[in-house]
Design a protein around this nucleic acid. Structure first.
Length: 666
DNA sequence: GACTGCTCATGTTA
DNA sequence: CTAACATGAGCAGT
């Protein structure tokens, strides 16, 4: 657990590296012509803008991130503090329709599936200006509170968490009704319509809150963080005011393979222009207009362009992952004949020097996955000695220290005393696999009526306890409700962090909600906790991380008609204490962070004693390859109730997670 | 000039 | 394979 050795603690005295969380607002130099103002997130501005009537504002929304604009879904009165100044005539029928539409979505109606009456269709297509006013006479509850952080990085993470949470839940609900189509777009559109987005003003250069290497699993995710506005088009460009001619500039391109781009060199990208490729209509030569023209203008003015590369998702069949690869500039462009015989524009872009690794990390990770022995600085090829499905590499890229690790690698938990047999395991009678919406599936019932995982095995929401199908269920091993019992599926490496001992990361991209690993070890009988335990840095106990969980569940709860119990109650303190000191798995190397990317979830599948569940870790954010995996240890070193017995273990330890909301100790 | 409402262009996802 | 879905540019009209 806390693997801060004494010598490591002394690192605390070293000047803390201030992690550059955001680039300064990029200023785009315009030698001649209009100055293109680039946007930075200014919290003060944000507040002012949000409460200012739109009629007097600039044509382009200056309010960058309307986090304060509530999504209003439930029919509960809104507090007066949230009222918005507005003119009487602003409470248009459109607003009314919109709120009705939201209610509709909120109440999980299959409104999207169903062919809607003309009026409703109209409401659904209403384009809300980005300065949309919220009528204060609407008696609804603001559920989504603005992120209190003025840190754009935190905002960007929150908004993606929100999106994916909504998406998973919509998918879960759609599946029940057998209409699982484009939950990503439904979730994205809902957020866009409610202005739950950031960076809606286009800028040249980096976007606040989005870092090189960030990954996205859906196009619409890049829309809501403002990295790439078009939901479909590959070239995002912005108008530049000038007289008589089109001076629009490209701001971001997505290289998604649809246009036969060359992808070999990680610093060079040859990008094909857009157009002429319609599937429905006659194909034709590309024209120098729209995105193509913007790219040409960007070349002439030598401006930076954000580049998003895409790659196949190793875990989802024929789907893509998008990677923000940083800023590029166009070096040259030309016209050539494509394979279909028509002319296309080609642009050769070169990556700006001095940026953190983007796509190059992926290329390396890919190589390692094919042959782990090619991993540099390897100490041990497989820490698990073949007991895991995949090898667990031990590496040290930092140098200096190589501390030998002595422990038995085990894949599960060992109980020191018999478990309670009071509660019997329930079992389902499903043929083949459990399916959503089956009222007879007792496993779904046990989980509150829904299967807890999406088809691709993502945890939909955090629950106090999750019941997977057991050996006494009739469904097969392929049932989706057996995610964690199949064991780890990621290529892990245990690496030397330099200041926090050993840490864990993976070569794979991880989707929010994906299963990571169990906390394996020996379950300690609290009545027999001996002296050794207080020296044990590898203890897991059920710390309360309800903040993390309620944020992660927030999207799913937006869609609830009736609250299924507040998320704060979602964390149950359990008597279980696991030590991974002598026996454990990769989880024993997971470090603490106050801004974690994992959360633990109690899971049951092989016995009925709910006080001693399996402790399973799931991703709560999208995690790019080679990013350290962390969870929130909670605030105390000692298990609840044992503070007096183990004062030493209660001693707070300095936290080195360097996140902006770091509590300083854990 | 500001706003509204329409058409068109653009691919992604299951 | 193909249905179903999105945003935003651009333009005409008010």
């Amino acid at each position: 657990m806390n693997r801060l050795k004494d010598e490591a603690v002394s690192d605390e005295e070293q000047p803390l590296k201030s992690k550059p969380l955001l680039s300064p607002a990029p200023v785009f130099p315009t030698p001649s012509g209009p100055v293109v103002a680039t946007k930075s997130v200014d919290p003060e501005l944000l507040n002012i803008m949000t409460f200012r009537p739109s009629s007097s504002s600039a044509p382009v929304s200056p309010a960058p991130d309307l986090f304060d604009v509530p999504i209003r879904l439930k029919g509960t009165p809104v507090s007066g503090a949230l009222s918005t100044p507005r003119h009487e005539d602003e409470s248009s029928s459109k607003d009314y329709k919109r709120s009705r539409e939201l209610k509709k979505l909120a109440s999980l109606r299959k409104s999207i599936k169903r062919a809607r009456p003309a009026q409703d269709c109209k409401a659904a297509n209403v384009k809300l200006s980005s300065r949309r006013q919220v009528p204060d006479n609407d008696k609804e509850l603001c559920i989504w509170r603005p992120s209190l952080s003025d840190n754009p990085r935190v905002s960007a993470e929150e908004i993606i968490i929100m999106f994916d949470s909504l998406r998973r839940r919509m998918m879960q609900l759609d599946e029940k009704e057998d209409s699982s189509k484009r939950a990503d777009m439904k979730a994205g559109a809902l957020m866009m319509r409610n202005n739950m987005r950031i960076n809606s003003v286009k800028t040249v250069g980096h976007v606040p809150g989005v870092e090189v290497g960030d990954i996205f699993f859906y196009r619409i995710e890049m829309c809501i963080v403002g990295l790439h506005a078009p939901a479909m088009g590959g070239i995002d460009y912005m108008p530049v005011n000038s007289v008589g001619k089109d001076d629009s500039l490209a701001v971001c391109i997505i290289s998604s393979g649809g246009y036969d781009n060359e992808e070999d060199d990680t610093d060079i990208l040859v990008y094909t222009g857009q157009g002429g490729n319609s599937r429905k209509k006659q194909k034709h030569d590309q024209k120098l207009e729209r995105g193509n023209l913007a790219l040409m203008n960007s070349q002439n003015k030598n401006t930076q362009i954000r580049v998003v590369r895409s790659t196949h998702d190793p875990f989802r069949h024929s789907e893509k992952i998008y990677i923000y690869d940083g800023l590029y500039r166009i070096e040259e462009s030309w016209i050539e004949k494509a394979r279909n015989g028509f002319n296309v524009f080609k642009y050769k872009l070169r990556r700006e020097p001095g940026q953190p690794d983007g796509i190059s990390v992926w290329k390396k990770a890919q190589k390692w996955k094919e042959n782990p022995a090619t991993r540099e600085n390897i100490i041990q090829l497989d820490l698990s000695s073949n007991v895991e499905n995949l090898p667990v590499c031990l590496v040290n890229d930092v140098g200096n220290v190589t501390i030998p690790i002595h422990f038995n690698y085990v894949t599960g938990v060992k109980y020191s005393r018999p478990l309670s047999r009071e509660k019997q395991l329930r079992n389902c009678k499903c043929d083949s696999v459990c399916l959503p919406g089956d009222p007879d599936c007792s496993c779904a019932q046990q989980n509150g009526g829904d299967l807890p995982y999406t088809l691709s095995g993502l945890l939909v929401r955090h629950t106090p306890i999750l019941y997977e199908c057991s050996s006494s269920c009739q469904c097969s091993e392929n049932c989706r409700n057996r995610v964690t019992q199949r064991g780890i599926g990621l290529n892990f490496e245990v690496f030397w962090t330099g200041d926090r001992g050993w840490g864990l990361r993976t070569w794979d991209p991880v989707h929010a909600g994906a299963f990571i690993c169990e906390y394996a070890g020996e379950v300690i009988d609290e009545t027999k906790m001996n002296l050794d335990v207080k020296e044990d840095d590898y203890i897991f106990h059920t710390s309360c991380t309800s903040d993390t969980v309620s944020r992660w569940n927030q999207g799913t709860e937006l869609l609830e008609e009736t609250s299924r119990g507040s998320t704060t109650g979602s964390f149950r303190q359990l008597p279980i204490i696991i030590s991974a000191k002598d026996s454990g798995n990769v989880a024993r190397f997971v470090n603490h962070s106050c801004s974690p990317n994992l959360v633990w979830q109690a899971v049951q599948y092989d016995h009925g004693d709910d006080r001693y569940p399996h402790i399973m870790f799931f991703a709560i954010k999208h995690i790019p390859p080679m990013t350290e995996l962390t969870y929130d240890y909670g605030t105390k070193g000692a298990p609840p109730g044992f503070e007096d017995i183990f004062p030493k273990a209660c001693k707070l330890k300095p936290c080195l997670c360097s996140s902006t909301n770091c509590r300083g100790y854990f």
